[in-house]
Design a protein around this nucleic acid. Structure first.
Length: 572
RNA sequence: GCGCUCGUAGCUCAAUUGGAUAGAGCGUCAGCCUCCGAAGCUGAAGGUUGUGGGUUCAAUCCCCGCCGGGCGCACCA
C-alpha cells in the first residue's frame, strides 16, 4: 500500500477513536505530502474542517489529537503548526526500509489496479490522404502515454486507431485522381500527392457546380460497392497507412487494432433505425436528427438530407460495437478541443441508447504558431516528418560534440532517442488543456525542463554505476544498508516513494504532464545530489548506500520515462 | 448572441484539485570543471495570480459581474 494511504487510514482511525465521545460523525481524513520540508514530511489539514463539526477550534482539535494519538510505527513525531496543521515526521530508518522494499518490486510499488478490467483508448486517428502535421502529434503522443500508463496499471488496453477512411472526401479525391494524377509523384511521395489531388479537386468544387455533382456521384458509386472505386479507395488507404506506420515506428507507437470508420460502415443504417424505433430520432428539414433540448444541447444530425450518414452516426455505431465486443469499463477518446460539443452530444445519445459504459473525452488545446493558427492555404503547416528530422539532426550535432568517440551509428541511435524524446516531452510536460504555441526552440530544447535533461540525468547515473563496478567488481552494493544521512538523500527518498501515487493520479486524470513534472523534479533533486555529494569517493558503506540510491533514481526515471514513451539510452 | 476554455515573473509553463512564505525553465546578473559526464550545479534580481465583488478559519483554485485571447454552435470530421 502507498504511504499516504497507510497514513490516511491510520489517522482516520485515530481521529475516530480520539473523538468518539463527541458523538459526532467524523468524516474521513487524509494525509498528504507536504509542500515544504519545513512542515515535516506529511501533513494533515483536516483539523480545520473538523472545527465546525466538533464545535472546537482547529488548534484545540489538533492539540487533542497530538496529545492522545498512538503514533504510527513509521512516524518519529507529529507537531502542530499555524491554525491547526498537523505535521508528521517520518522515521528515517523506516523510510529507508520502505524505499528498499518498494524498489525490490519490479513494478516499483505501482499497484495493478486494472487487473481484470478492460479500457478502450481511441487516439491518433489521422485522416487518409492527408499527411500528418504537427497538429496530429498531440493526440498520438498524449494518447500513447495514457495507453502505456493503463497497461502498466494492469488494465487490458485496447488501443484503437480510428482512422478517417470513409466519408465525403473520397468522392472529391477520386475525381482528383482521375483528372490530375501525377504518377511519378504518387510513387515518390504518395500521401503528399493524394493531398494535392484532394486540394485541387476540392478547389474545383467551389467554382464548378457540375464538378461537385460528379464528386457526389463517385462517392455514391463507392458506397454502393463499385469495383473500380473500391479499388481506388483501397489504394488510398494502403498508401496512407504505410506512411502513418513509418511515423508510428519512429515515435514508438503501436496499436492493438486499426479500425477505420469504414469498418462500421454497414452498421450505420441500423443505428439510425434503432434511434427511430426508440423515438429518439425524427425527421427535420429533410434530415434525421436527435433533439437534445432537455440536455440543453443543439440538435445532432444522424442522417443528412441526402441520405448519407455522418460522424455522429459513425461514432454511435463504433461505440455499440466496442461495448458488445470488448465489454470495457470505460472508453477514452483523445482528440482536440474542437470536438467537445460533438462528444457531449454523442455521449448523451449513447446513454439514451442504453449504453452505461463510462465514456471519457480527453481533449487538448490546438497547436498554434506564434504568428497565429495553422493554415494549409498560407502554407505554414509543419509536417510531422520534417519536425522529427529536424529534431534528430539537432540532437546529432550535440551528441557528436559531447561524445566524439562514440561510433557513428550509436551517435545516430542516441540522436534519435534524444531528438524524439525532446519533441514528445514538450508535448507531454504541459497541461493538455491549453493551447500550445509551437516554436522550434522549445520543441527541440535540450536543456532546462526538457526530455534530454531527464535522459542526461539517467545517462550520468548509468555512467557512475559502470565506473563503480569497474573499480569494485567484487562488491555488491545491494547488500549494504541504505543510509539516508544527508538532507538531500532523505529528500530524494521521500520523492522516490511518491512514484506509485504519481502514476495512479496521472492515469486517473489523463494527465501525463503531472508524471512529467514529477520526473523533472526528481531529476533536478538528483542533479543537486550528484553535484554536491561525493559517492565514488566516499568511504565504504556510504559509497555503496549512495550507489544504491542512484540505482533507485535511475529505475524510477526509466520506468517513468517509459510511461511517457521516452527512451533512456545508457550513454548519450 | 449562447456554450466550452484559458489569463500566474520580461517570455514559456507549474502549483498535490480549498491549505502554510505562489514554484520551475528560458533570458538577465554573479559564482562553480586539476575533482564521480558543465545537456550540469550554487546564488541574486524578477509577482496586487487580468479586473471588481462574494462564499470561509483559509481562494491562483469555488460562485457572480466585467475586460482580453482561443475554440465551437444542423447536414465537415
Amino acid at each position: 500500500m502507498l504511504l499516504n494511504e497507510i497514513l490516511s487510514q491510520w489517522a482516520d482511525a485515530e481521529f475516530k477513536r480520539i473523538f468518539k465521545d463527541s458523538g459526532c460523525a467524523i468524516p474521513p481524513v487524509s494525509i498528504i505530502a507536504t509542500s515544504n520540508p519545513e512542515f515535516g514530511d506529511y501533513q494533515c489539514n483536516d483539523a480545520m474542517a473538523l472545527a465546525k463539526i466538533l464545535k472546537q477550534s482547529p488548534r484545540q482539535i489538533a492539540e487533542t489529537f497530538t496529545r492522545s494519538v498512538a503514533l504510527h510505527f513509521s512516524l518519529e513525531r507529529v507537531a502542530i503548526a499555524g491554525p491547526g496543521f498537523i505535521n508528521m515526521y517520518i522515521k528515517t530508518e523506516w523510510l529507508s526500509e520502505y524505499l528498499c522494499s518498494m524498489t525490490s518490486d519490479v513494478r516499483l510499488g505501482v499497484p495493478q489496479i486494472g487487473e481484470g478490467h478492460t479500457v478502450v483508448i481511441d487516439y491518433s486517428s489521422p485522416n487518409v490522404a492527408k499527411p500528418m502535421h504537427i497538429g496530429h502529434i498531440r493526440s498520438t503522443i498524449i494518447g500513447n502515454s495514457i495507453d502505456r500508463m493503463y497497461r502498466f496499471l494492469g488494465y487490458n488496453v485496447v488501443s484503437d486507431n480510428h482512422i478517417g477512411d470513409w466519408g465525403t472526401q473520397f468522392g472529391i479525391l477520386i475525381m482528383g485522381y482521375r483528372n490530375f494524377l501525377d504518377a511519378k509523384a504518387l510513387s515518390e511521395t504518395p500521401v503528399e500527392e493524394l493531398e494535392r489531388l484532394y486540394v485541387k479537386s476540392y478547389g474545383r468544387t467551389k467554382e464548378d457546380e457540375n464538378w461537385m455533382a460528379q464528386c457526389r456521384q463517385e462517392l455514391v458509386k463507392l458506397q454502393s460497392g463499385d469495383q473500380e472505386n473500391l479499388a481506388l479507395w483501397k489504394e488510398f488507404v494502403t498508401l496512407s497507412l504505410k506512411e502513418f506506420q513509418r511515423i508510428y515506428d519512429r515515435l514508438g507507437v503501436s496499436f492493438n487494432q486499426v479500425r477505420g470508420e469504414s469498418f462500421y460502415n454497414e452498421k450505420l443504417r441500423g443505428i439510425v433505425d434503432l434511434l427511430e424505433q426508440k423515438g429518439l430520432a425524427k425527421e427535420s428539414e429533410g434530415a434525421t436528427v436527435v433533439f437534445l433540448d432537455e440536455e440543453k444541447l443543439p440538435v445532432c444530425i444522424v442522417r443528412k438530407s441526402d441520405g448519407a450518414f455522418n460522424y455522429a452516426t459513425s461514432d454511435l455505431a463504433t461505440v455499440v460495437s466496442r461495448v458488445t465486443e470488448f465489454n470495457p469499463d470505460k472508453i477514452v477518446y483523445v482528440t482536440d478541443e474542437r470536438q467537445q460539443l460533438h462528444f457531449r452530444q454523442f455521449f448523451t445519445i449513447a446513454r439514451k441508447l442504453g449504453i452505461t459504459t463510462r465514456l471519457d473525452h480527453v481533449w487538448f488545446g490546438l497547436m498554434r504558431l506564434p504568428e497565429g493558427t495553422f493554415s494549409t492555404r498560407e502554407g505554414n503547416v509543419i509536417k510531422l516528418e520534417c519536425l522529427l528530422d529536424e529534431a534528430e539532426q539537432r540532437a546529432l550535432a550535440i551528441v557528436q560534440k559531447a561524445s566524439p568517440d562514440m561510433q557513428l551509428d550509436q551517435q545516430k541511435a542516441v540522436a534519435r532517442s534524444v531528438g524524439i524524446g525532446a519533441v514528445k516531452y514538450t508535448d507531454l510536460s504541459q497541461n493538455p488543456q491549453t493551447t500550445v504555441t509551437f516554436t522550434w526552440e522549445k520543441a527541440l530544447s535540450l536543456e532546462g525542463n526538457s526530455g534530454p535533461y531527464l535522459q542526461y540525468a539517467y545517462a550520468r547515473i548509468a555512467s557512475v554505476r559502470d565506473k563503480y563496478s569497474e573499480k569494485h567488481s567484487d562488491i555488491n552494493p545491494d547488500v549494504y544498508l541504505l543510509k539516508l544521512t544527508e538532507t538531500i538523500e532523505r529528500k530524494l527518498a521521500l520523492m522516490l516513494i511518491r512514484f506509485p501515487d504519481v502514476v495512479l493520479r496521472a492515469a486517473e486524470t489523463y494527465k501525463p504532464s503531472s508524471l512529467a513534472d514529477y520526473l523533472y523534479d526528481l531529476a533536478q533533486t538528483y542533479s543537486t545530489f550528484y553535484q554536491n555529494v561525493p559517492f565514488l569517493k566516499a568511504e565504504e558503506g556510504v559509497r555503496e548506500s549512495r550507489i544504491r540510491l542512484c540505482g533507485m533514481v535511475a529505475r524510477v526515471l526509466r520506468t517513468g520515462l517509459d510511461l511517457l514513451g521516452i527512451e533512456t539510452p545508457e550513454r548519450i
